[in-house]
Design a protein around this nucleic acid. Sequence first.
DNA 1: CCTTAACCGAGACGGTACGTCCCGTCTTCTA
DNA 2: TAGAAGACGGGACGTACCGTCTCGGTTAAGG
Lengths: 193, 193, 193, 193
Amino acid sequence: MARPRTRTLVYDAVLSLAREDRLGSISMEGVAARAGVSKQTLYRTWPSTRVILFDALLARSLSEDGMVAVPNSGYLEVDLESLVVATIAELTDSTQEPLLRAVTADIQTDEVLAAQFRDRLLTPQLKAISNRLRRESIDDPDAAAELLLGPIFHRWLLRTRAFEPGWASAHVQRVLQATASRAVLLDLLARRP
Amino acid sequence: MARPRTRTLVYDAVLSLAREDRLGSISMEGVAARAGVSKQTLYRTWPSTRVILFDALLARSLSEDGMVAVPNSGYLEVDLESLVVATIAELTDSTQEPLLRAVTADIQTDEVLAAQFRDRLLTPQLKAISNRLRRESIDDPDAAAELLLGPIFHRWLLRTRAFEPGWASAHVQRVLQATASRAVLLDLLARRP
Amino acid sequence: MARPRTRTLVYDAVLSLAREDRLGSISMEGVAARAGVSKQTLYRTWPSTRVILFDALLARSLSEDGMVAVPNSGYLEVDLESLVVATIAELTDSTQEPLLRAVTADIQTDEVLAAQFRDRLLTPQLKAISNRLRRESIDDPDAAAELLLGPIFHRWLLRTRAFEPGWASAHVQRVLQATASRAVLLDLLARRP
Amino acid sequence: MARPRTRTLVYDAVLSLAREDRLGSISMEGVAARAGVSKQTLYRTWPSTRVILFDALLARSLSEDGMVAVPNSGYLEVDLESLVVATIAELTDSTQEPLLRAVTADIQTDEVLAAQFRDRLLTPQLKAISNRLRRESIDDPDAAAELLLGPIFHRWLLRTRAFEPGWASAHVQRVLQATASRAVLLDLLARRP
DNA sequence: CCTTAACCGAGACGGTACGTCCCGTCTTCTA
DNA sequence: TAGAAGACGGGACGTACCGTCTCGGTTAAGG
């Protein structure tokens, strides 16, 4: 509905506000003022600040290819570890973190937003990982992908602990062992004293 | 600061509101009206609705022993599976879920609340699990505890998938295999054809 | 400026809205929507709803000869009384009254509109009456016309009282006595015991 | 409901705005800003600017005895003429006129306001005049009072003509003649050549 | 038992933001 | 080339809560 020019103004405004303000304090009036746009123009296109923010993030991730890609060097362990490191880096990046936290907070109370977030970002991410795993001798690649991401988000979302150096590597080891097939386990045992 | 009678009224009010209303729509005025208490009385003791809600949850979990306890039957697999099942049950209980989601949403934007939540509820929970694991031949019980809870909360917080029947059991298997020592792995292989 | 077809649509729209809505709630957008005309088309021709309404009333009074004419039967008293009765009827007619009230309200704040209203409707009306009076033995026909209409509008505009039956007749008597010449007064006295 | 201090601030604000602004452009937000009062404080007590304005006028007319009193020197003609002159002066006073016009405009669309205006201001005024007339040999003092005020308001409300010098005196003559009894008419004729 | 201080209800208040309506201007697309 | 369609900046609407601030009444402990 809104013209491209307007969308750009609004996205820039909401992202800059999210960077500097308390996240809960972003208001439609504030966004309108910052964007130099009338409130009605906002409401014609977006029902709430959370949706604006989500759209802005989506637009950015589409344009800049902001998503974390799954590397594919042929060495599974190496690939998974660099994926974990990249994911942690994104989650704790000072410009990204507040935005991502805002959206995940919104997900708790907005099922529509949650569905969009799931379908457009999370499920593709999990699928990309499980596809990478499927090409190796992994019994249940979907479960392995969850096992890989679960503890990362557990720490981040519930703020239980920071990510200590070396953790990524050990974590990948555990995940691979968790879903290793009989053959791989035998191989592992052979290599471990 | 507030008298016990007042606290009870307020906690009951906020919990009943949380059950019926949209969670974001809980307001100090609404709680005051529901509790039959003046706004000033609320503000004397609590700075915001999120703190009231958190206090109310804490008070309840202390009184009713609402926390999920780690069973200790001697059979590790059985114990972990029943723990996972109980955790999932609590997270998806229709009266609990909205409250828990509200608090986890608040955690994203309120670091003080996050610290309290972590210290009073999450860390004890993880410790209880890792203590249970330590008594078995588990290499890294803390990591195992995270591996156990991480995917559960990943599904629940990011709403990626529902918990399908049988998942708990398979998940426990994977977690145990992930952190199994050489001896345990040999045992596992012996039992698996 | 606007094409006749457009004018008709607009006049019909504004008159129908005036009949059904609260008078203050007529808006340019509402008229445009009702008339099936774009807002720009309205603004090209009329600056405000009050002007549209006034134009619509004028157009109607010109076409339907909606104005109250001064009867001329030769019997002054009879003529004046039927004029008064007709005027009261117009002012209190349920389809006319709201429109007339809207315009008179506008007159209080819009001097341009007041001038048009005066020149096109009120002054001709007063002139018609005083011309009728001038043909009789009336000292000051302009004053008499004002004396005739003044109390009618005083009751109607300030809503002081309803018009009770028989009032018109007595009122005409008083007005005639008020402006009677010496000769007429003598005649009156001769006829009154 | 509002505290006296607040009422004073609000009345002063609305009266000062009415003096300087276009009358139709008085808004709740404008009054609140000028009074240094929050919008909610206004709405808690008054439903609209028209009611604020009316209350402010009432408060002023009560405190300053702003109403036009009927003089009582014993000489009826003299008294009525000075009453007419005073009334005209009030209606055309540059600080009063916009306020009075605003209220009379509102009366056209607000029947509740009209009733209050009638009962608190207009009817007492008419009664005061007719009481003064009743003490003389006037047949129908109520009708005479209407005959006296009607043309004044006709000119003022419909803006038909300005009040020319000498008109007040001639108008009083006509009104007295209009409702004069036989005895008074004889007296009048005797005094007029 | 009485006082005296903490606690409480009630609610007016200045303020921010909400989401809506309408203003008057402007551009774009269609007939 | 006129006109519908409608996006746009702007102002005001009336409402919901915010957090602060008196102002009287209760209540419960300590003298």
